[in-house]
């Protein structure tokens, strides 16, 4: 019973610790950005303090999410999202006829059509012609 009541406290403490770690990384990003542009000078210190106060304390609710999104985009999550939405649209069996991709695919389709024809199915003439008729390959150099 005690563990159940303490469970939300654990997640609260976890969130607070991760929030603090995120703020430290955000401060490091600000410091490295300012030092890269201005070097180590009193102006850079003033800018770091100003930007740090603004980002980490005043509007952290806004900048925290942006920093997490920036980090994820830097790591490449946009590619994952593209793959995911692209693949989920293609999920399941293809609804359109796919072009012949290989000799094995052609052989399998021919066998399926012969089987369907033997069972009395109405095989489309155009499809049958496209897969059954093949131009003989010319030897190279002639």
């Amino acid at each position: 019973m005690i563990e159940i009541t303490l469970f939300p406290l654990f997640f609260g403490e976890l969130f607070a610790d991760l929030n603090l770690a995120l703020k430290i990384f955000a401060l490091l990003t600000i410091v490295s950005f300012v030092w890269a542009h201005l070097g180590k000078s009193p102006l850079s210190v003033a800018l770091i303090v100003g930007f740090g106060w603004f980002v980490l304390f005043d509007y952290w609710k806004f900048f925290g999410g942006i920093f997490v999104l920036y980090t994820l985009l830097t790591l490449g999550i946009s590619g994952i999202l593209i793959d995911f939405f692209f693949v989920s649209q293609m999920g399941g069996e293809p609804t359109e006829a796919q072009p012949v991709s290989s000799g094995v695919d052609l052989m399998m389709r021919q066998q399926a059509m012969l089987k369907a024809k033997a069972q009395g199915a109405n095989v489309p003439r155009g499809m049958q012609q496209r897969t059954m008729q093949q131009k003989p390959k010319r030897p190279m150099g002639r």
Partner: peptide, 22 residues
């Protein structure tokens, strides 16, 4: 995030699962 995502292995997982489902 730092290993699998940065090395694009998660894309491999997504495509592999989609091919298996199809």
């Amino acid at each position: 995030f730092y290993v699998l995502l940065a090395f694009q292995f998660l894309s491999v997982v997504i495509w592999g699962l989609s091919v298996t489902m199809r």
